[in-house]
Design a protein around this nucleic acid. Structure first.
Ligand SMILES: [Mn+2]
Ligand SMILES: [Mn+2]
Ligand SMILES: [Zn+2]
Ligand SMILES: [Zn+2]
Lengths: 143, 143
DNA sequence: CTGTTAATGAAAACATTTTTCATTAAGGGG
DNA sequence: CCCCTTAATGAAAAATGTTTTCATTAACAG
């Protein structure tokens, strides 16, 4: 039994074919997937999979922090698997490939400065980096 | 003629009542507004304002960097006015109030580390902080 | 195996965003 | 100051994305 299946069991959730199909799609993805894309890929594993179940499964996976929502300039419909711990996402703007990097207390100095200036108490942050992956840098050195 | 009106003129765009209404709504807002909210408030200035025009105007304002899109956990439908220069948004999770803070090269060390580790070339970032504003901290000290 | 009930999925409702196209009005030229 | 051109607008409809409803299915404890 895999780690995510144990996690489902631990919170009294059932391990179902639709959930396996969604997880399978995410495991094989190299970039964030939208719900519709997860449906398309998931149906290769479980033909009867429905879009509603994809949404519900993503909601569950989000709650268990198995997946993370990825924000793009135009929308936030991308989902990627989460590594355990504090991470952030780095996206290639050309091919969409996403990698995670660990987020330490790199922002602590900044956050404390902002807290002092604004009076706000900061308890959460959203950080995503955008750029070009190695392959896409070579592909279009000047384009 | 205000600064944003000059900017419209400079790019051969017309200064219209609908655009004034949208800008007016954003100027008076203290938190990010969704298109529908902008419509509601804008109609107090220009009764005939339509939702389609709100979307088109936001698109224009985004292109001119007069407004910025605000991302939240569940969606990205919020728009706030942009100050000139490199800024980030800090949102109160209770009342929604948004403030901007200047973004310097606070992330440069982090970005260079990530570039080294991943091989990506980073050229853009999305950073938003979430927390509680002064008022909301006092209102619910323990709640 | 069987029974309980969480989970599913088709359909419909709902919400958001975009397209279409006839009409309006901004603002430059006369 | 008034036309004229055409960018801009907005009602309606289409397209897209998300949530609700509810009868049916299947996970899994016993
Ligand atoms: Mn972090
Ligand atoms: Mn910055
Ligand atoms: Zn790439
Ligand atoms: Zn507040």
């Amino acid at each position: 039994m895999t780690a995510w299946e144990q996690q489902l069991t631990a919170c009294d959730c059932r391990i179902t074919m639709p959930r396996r199909a969604v997880m399978g799609a995410l495991l094989e993805a190299e970039s964030p997937l939208a719900p519709q894309e997860i449906l398309d890929r998931g149906r290769q594993v479980h033909t009867r999979l429905g879009l509603v179940t994809v949404y519900r499964t993503l909601e569950l996976f989000l709650r268990l922090t198995l997946v993370r929502r990825v924000h793009r300039e135009d929308g936030c419909q991308g989902y990627v698997l989460t590594s355990p711990g504090h991470h952030h996402v780095l996206l290639c703007r050309d091919c969409g490939r996403a990698v995670e990097f660990p987020g330490g207390d790199d922002l602590q100095v900044l956050i404390q400065r902002v807290e002092g200036e604004t009076g706000y108490r900061v308890d959460e942050h959203l950080l995503q980096l955008f750029g070009r992956c190695t392959a896409c840098q070579q592909g279009e050195s000047d384009a």
